[in-house]
């Protein structure tokens, strides 16, 4: 099967996944106590204003009608109006997306570029002191809640040492006039950098620890394979064995972990964004839930689910690229 056909088929299959996500979220949001209109207008509102607004958002209709209408809109790319913000949900998502993407990208870049070499080194120096240190670090890393790391960083680096800002993000491409303490492009980049450090560590430490652990165990397993012994027996140097003969094979499980973590970290950024008051999608979801803003909650959830589906698909494609034994969908 060719790659484009494989991708098309997988995307076709994911329509059902997404339909499931929409349905379940739709039911959950509607089952939750609280009324978006009352929350929006406030407790002192009169009955006619409430009725008018309910009609405006179609909330006066029975749930199955609303469900079908919603689906038809989604198919046309319309995620509806946010009740709270009074703008289209898509617009709100697009507005918040860059901050979240920047945070996730920065965290994973940090996690991957540190974890992969450390994992390899740890495997190479198995049971030596450095390996033990890395492993203990990894264990602490995977078992520490990220918001706790965030709070700890803020207490130390902001309150005690006053080194780094604890709130918000600065987009590196923002115009200098829109950024505090910035007059030149370089200032913007600097501000962007110092704002990113703590959120990156907060979201990235867990990822780093997870990748490091899988990298180490995966490398160890590959280094024990017979084909590595063969390379050694034919005079291939340890360096080449590590870099060429073992590395590529060992990345298969690592890739899976990165792919899955990447997609769940998008959701996981909710905590980090809250701790650092970052206006990303994570905080958007929180606002949506608090305001019982049905369209907003549904829209962001659907958006995340799509990212997840695409993430898994890309992981699978990369996997097939790295491992010639896997071909696209030959099982059919």
């Amino acid at each position: 099967m060719s790659l484009p056909r494989y991708v098309a088929r997988r995307l076709g299959q994911s329509v059902f996944t997404l339909l499931g996500v929409v349905t379940i979220t739709f039911l959950l949001v509607n089952a939750a106590p609280g009324d978006p209109v009352r929350i929006f207008i406030g407790p002192s509102a009169d009955a006619s204003a409430i009725a008018a607004m309910r009609a405006q958002f179609g909330l006066d209709q029975p749930i199955h009608i609303r469900y079908i209408k919603y689906l038809m809109n989604v198919v046309q790319g319309d995620l509806g109006q946010s009740i709270n913000y009074r703008v289209p949900v898509t617009q709100k998502i697009l507005e918040r997306l860059p901050a979240t993407l920047l945070l996730v990208a920065s965290s994973f870049t940090f996690a991957i570029i540190t974890a992969v070499p450390i994992g390899v080194l740890s495997a190479q120096r198995r049971n030596q002191l450095s390996d033990h240190v890395f492993r203990i670090f990894g264990l602490i890393g995977v078992s520490t809640p990220s918001f706790w790391i965030g709070l700890l960083l803020i207490i130390i680096l902001t309150y005690h040492l006053g080194l780094l800002p604890a709130t918000g993000l600065v987009m590196p491409w923002a115009p200098p006039s829109a950024v505090d303490h910035a007059t030149t492009r370089l200032d913007v980049l600097y501000q962007s950098g110092i704002h990113l450090i703590m959120p990156t560590l907060t979201l990235g430490t867990l990822q780093m620890a997870a990748i490091m652990r899988i990298e180490r165990s995966s490398m160890l397993e590959v280094l024990n394979q017979e084909y590595v012994s063969l390379a050694r027996a034919f005079g291939v140097s340890e360096r080449t064995i590590l870099r060429k003969h073992a590395f590529r094979n060992a990345q298969l499980p690592v890739l899976t972990v990165i792919g899955l973590n990447l997609t769940t970290a998008l959701g996981g950024s909710v905590l980090t964004e809250t701790v650092f008051s970052i206006n990303g999608i994570g905080t958007l979801i929180i606002t949506g839930v608090n305001a019982r803003d049905y369209p907003l909650v549904l829209g962001t959830t659907l958006f995340y689910a799509s990212l997840f589906v695409i993430g898994v698909l890309i992981t699978d494609i990369l996997y097939a690229y790295l491992d010639p034994r896997i071909s696209y969908g030959d099982e059919s």
């Binding site: 084909y227 034919f234 005079g235 291939v236 094979n249």
Partner: peptide
């Protein structure tokens, strides 16, 4: 490594299934 293994003494491995690297 540089003077003996492979160049002067070569080993034929026992297991043909496990001794070749699957990704190359």
């Amino acid at each position: 490594r540089s003077q003996i293994r492979g160049s002067e003494i070569a080993l034929i491995f026992q297991d043909p299934m496990e001794s070749l690297n699957p990704v190359f």
